[in-house]
Amino acid sequence: MIKGLYEAHLPVSNLKQSIEYYKGLGLEFSHSHEDKLAFFWIEKDKSWLGLWETDKVEIEYHPSIRHIAFQVTLEGLKNSVTWLHEKGYEPREAFGFKPIEPFVMAHSGMAHAKIHFNDPDGNSLEFICKLPNPKNITKRMYLSEWEELHKATKIF
C-alpha cells in the first residue's frame, strides 16, 4: 500500500527567509499559497516539503516533531560539512558527536551515516545515507573510523 513519503511539513516564523534558506540547500521551489505556505520538491514530482508560516515554531524541539532527514549519496555526505560551511550553514552536534564530520549510527544488519544542522527556526535537518554493515557492527563512530574498519572489505 505505502510506497514512499509524499510530503512533510515544518513550521517557520518567516516564510520569505525560509524560502531563501531552503533554496540555498538546493531544493527546487514548487509553489506557495497566500504567503503562508510554500512547497519545495525533494524529488521532483515525487515528494516535497511544505513550510508553514506560523507561531508554532515556539513549540520546543523534540526528535518526533520539527525534523526532516534528507537522503544523500555517501560522496555528498563526505563533503557535507564543507558544503554546509560554504553555504553559510552550521552543522551541529548530535548524539554526542561534534559536527566535524558525519558520524555513523550502526545497528545489527544496518547502518546510517549522517550530519545534523538547523534551519533559521531551529527545525532539525539531517543529511543521511544508508551504509552496508557486513560486520554487523553495533556501535556509533565517526564516518572516517567506519571507513577504516571496512578498508579490507573494499566496501568504500
Score class of each variant (00 low, 15 high):
residue 31 H to M: 08
residue 40 F to Q: 09
residue 57 V to Y: 14
residue 65 I to L: 06
residue 56 K to I: 02
residue 10 L to N: 00
residue 30 S to Q: 04
residue 40 F to N: 09
residue 89 Y to G: 02
residue 22 Y to D: 06
residue 23 K to V: 05
residue 31 H to Y: 15
residue 75 E to D: 13
residue 92 R to H: 00
residue 58 E to P: 01
residue 8 A to P: 03
residue 91 P to Y: 01
residue 70 F to A: 04
residue 77 L to A: 05
residue 86 E to T: 10
residue 51 L to Q: 02
residue 71 Q to R: 15
residue 94 A to E: 07
residue 59 I to H: 14
residue 54 T to Q: 10
residue 55 D to R: 10
residue 92 R to W: 05
residue 62 H to V: 14
residue 29 F to I: 08
residue 51 L to H: 00
residue 53 E to M: 13
residue 88 G to S: 06
residue 90 E to Q: 15
residue 81 V to S: 02
residue 58 E to W: 00
residue 84 L to N: 01
residue 37 L to S: 03
residue 84 L to R: 00
residue 4 G to S: 07
residue 16 K to Y: 07
residue 74 L to Q: 07
residue 46 K to A: 02
residue 32 S to T: 10
residue 88 G to E: 07
residue 38 A to K: 04
residue 58 E to T: 05
residue 28 E to C: 09
residue 36 K to Y: 09
residue 52 W to H: 12
residue 29 F to T: 14
residue 83 W to N: 10
residue 80 S to I: 05
residue 17 Q to N: 05
residue 47 S to W: 09
residue 28 E to D: 12
residue 25 L to I: 10
residue 46 K to I: 10
residue 88 G to Y: 14
residue 67 H to N: 15
residue 22 Y to T: 07
residue 65 I to R: 07
residue 25 L to Q: 11
residue 56 K to E: 10
residue 40 F to P: 06
residue 82 T to P: 00
residue 47 S to D: 07
residue 32 S to H: 13
residue 68 I to A: 01
residue 35 D to R: 11
residue 47 S to R: 03
residue 68 I to E: 01
residue 15 L to K: 09
residue 18 S to M: 11
residue 65 I to C: 03
residue 79 N to I: 02
residue 53 E to H: 00
residue 20 E to I: 05
residue 4 G to V: 04
residue 15 L to R: 05
residue 60 E to D: 11
residue 48 W to I: 11
residue 45 D to E: 15
residue 43 E to F: 03
residue 85 H to T: 04
residue 5 L to W: 11
residue 52 W to C: 11
residue 90 E to G: 06
residue 86 E to I: 03
residue 31 H to K: 08
residue 10 L to C: 04
residue 87 K to W: 01
residue 36 K to V: 11
residue 79 N to E: 12
residue 56 K to Y: 13
residue 44 K to P: 04
residue 42 I to M: 08
residue 30 S to T: 06
residue 83 W to E: 08
residue 63 P to A: 12
residue 91 P to H: 05
residue 46 K to L: 03
residue 36 K to T: 13
residue 51 L to E: 00
residue 44 K to W: 00
residue 6 Y to W: 07
residue 36 K to N: 02
residue 89 Y to F: 15
residue 11 P to M: 03
residue 64 S to V: 14
residue 69 A to G: 14
residue 56 K to G: 00
residue 63 P to I: 11
residue 63 P to C: 04
residue 87 K to D: 04
residue 55 D to L: 09
residue 19 I to S: 02
residue 9 H to D: 09
residue 6 Y to G: 15
residue 50 G to N: 10
residue 40 F to I: 06
residue 26 G to W: 04
residue 83 W to V: 03
residue 56 K to W: 12
residue 66 R to A: 14
residue 40 F to S: 03
residue 21 Y to S: 03
residue 47 S to K: 01
residue 38 A to R: 01
residue 5 L to M: 09
residue 69 A to F: 05
residue 31 H to V: 02
residue 13 S to A: 08
residue 6 Y to S: 15
residue 63 P to N: 07
residue 93 E to F: 13
residue 37 L to V: 13
residue 39 F to H: 11
residue 45 D to A: 15
residue 49 L to K: 05
